[in-house]
Structures are given as C-alpha cells and as structure tokens.
C-alpha cells in the first residue's frame, strides 16, 4: 500500500534539506559563473603562460570526478591547517568544478561572436577590459544561456554528492528517512518530485530570461 501519510509527515524534513540542495547548487553556480568568466578570459589571453594555466585548470577540474574533488577538499584543507566548515568546502568544490565547464561553454560562445564586434570598439579607443565587459561577455552570456541553464540543472542534481562530506541535503535526508520509516518508495518518489519541480522551475526561468535577453 502506497502511504501518502508517510510523505506528508516527512515533507517538512525533506523541504528543510532541500534548502541545502538549493544553497550548495545556487552558490556553486554563482561562484562558477564568476570564476568561469575569469577563466575563459584567461584561456583566451594572448599571454601564453596565463592561457596555459587556465587550460590546466580546466583539464584538472573536468578530468577528476567531483566526488573525489569533494573528498580531497574535505580532507586536504584541514590537513594544511585551513579550517573551513564542510558547507563552504562543498560550495567551493562545486563552484570550482562548475567554473571549468562554464569557461568552456563561454569560450565556445565567444568564438561565435564576430571579430568585428571587438574591432569596432577598439577603433573607438575602448580599453580591452571594457570591450570584454561591455561588448563580448554580454553577447557570450546570451548565446550560451541555454547551456548555462543546463549546467545549473546539472549542479542541482550533482549537489547530492555533497552528502559525502556530511551535509544533509535532499538525497541524504531521503536516505535517512527511508531507513527510519522503512518506506523508501514513497520517500524517493517525493524526493524525485522535488528535484523535478526545482529543475522545471529553473528551465522555465531560463526560458523567460532568454526571451528577456532577446534583441
């Protein structure tokens, strides 16, 4: 018998844990976006060693599983005397990893921006920094909006990995409640529904944003 009451009774706990899912993926995305922009600009820098470092960064963070990165951050940082709460270690891990993907997404989009765009700005005497900030990055963000929303949705799902460093987010909470109630089916269906609602909302938000950015 499917027990609706199990879901109703435990919903507050699930929602409580969902806050961490949102927090980790949301902050991770914010950090990833800022770092990703910096990394992408570095990757395209004419100065060789800067672009090499950025390329190395991308290779590492894309090449090592996020779970391993999380565990590394969790065990490594304290061992060198850096004592940050697990939540922040998790946000940083997710953000640093997302940055590698976002940098590549933006790099692809920047290649699609015609060369004449920056040239027109340079001919007016604009500073390279201003050209990046006002001309190139806004256009790259628009072009890559669908991929960025996709990345954010990935992060929401991937955030379940942070339970490995002791953060009780939605997936971890579902496991605990299932074990306590012996009602895994109901609980996991509820968790799946919550993930689905979040990601449908994000997809909708992304579409609205794309429309707004349309010119």
């Amino acid at each position: 018998m499917f027990s609706w009451s199990t879901i109703v009774e435990n919903l507050p706990y699930l929602l409580q844990a969902t806050r961490f899912t949102l927090l980790v993926s949301g902050l991770g995305m914010g950090l990833g976006l800022v770092m990703g922009i910096v990394l992408c600009v570095a990757r395209l820098s004419p100065i060789r060693w800067i672009s090499r470092i950025a390329a190395l960064y991308v290779s590492f963070f894309r090449g090592v599983p996020l779970l391993v990165q999380l565990l590394l951050a969790y065990y490594f940082l304290p061992s060198v005397g850096i004592d940050i709460p697990p939540l922040w270690a998790a946000v940083c891990s997710i953000g640093l990893c997302a940055a590698a993907y976002i940098a590549e997404i933006l790099r692809g989009a920047l290649i699609a921006v015609p060369h004449g765009q920056a040239e027109a700005a340079a001919a007016l005497g604009m500073h390279p920094f201003t050209i990046w900030k006002r001309i190139l990055i806004p256009q790259a963000l628009k072009i890559s909006m669908p991929s960025l929303v996709n990345e954010l949705i990935m992060l929401v799902k991937v955030s379940s990995l942070v339970s490995a460093v002791g953060i009780v987010e939605l997936t971890r909470m579902s496991q605990s409640i299932s074990a306590a109630t012996f009602r895994p089916l109901e609980i996991y269906i509820a968790a799946a529904a919550i993930y689905l609602v979040i990601n449908l909302a994000l997809a909708g938000l992304g579409q609205a944003l794309e429309k707004r950015l349309d010119y």
């Binding site: 765009q117 040239e119 027109a120 700005a121 007016l124």
Partner: peptide, 27 residues
C-alpha cells in the same frame, strides 16, 4: 579617428542610442 565598416559591426545587444552612447561614456 572614426571608422565605419562594411558590415556595420553594431553591437546587437544595445539599442541604436546605446550603441552611440557607449564610447561616449566608456571612452
């Protein structure tokens, strides 16, 4: 030195007025 290109090279994410005003502000 002003320059005008064959392909216009207007910035598509800015209105006509913003295109013209941009360098006045930034430069």
């Amino acid at each position: 030195i002003g320059m005008v290109f064959q392909q216009f090279n207007l910035w598509p994410h800015m209105t006509a007025q913003q295109n013209v005003a941009e360098a006045l502000v930034q430069v």
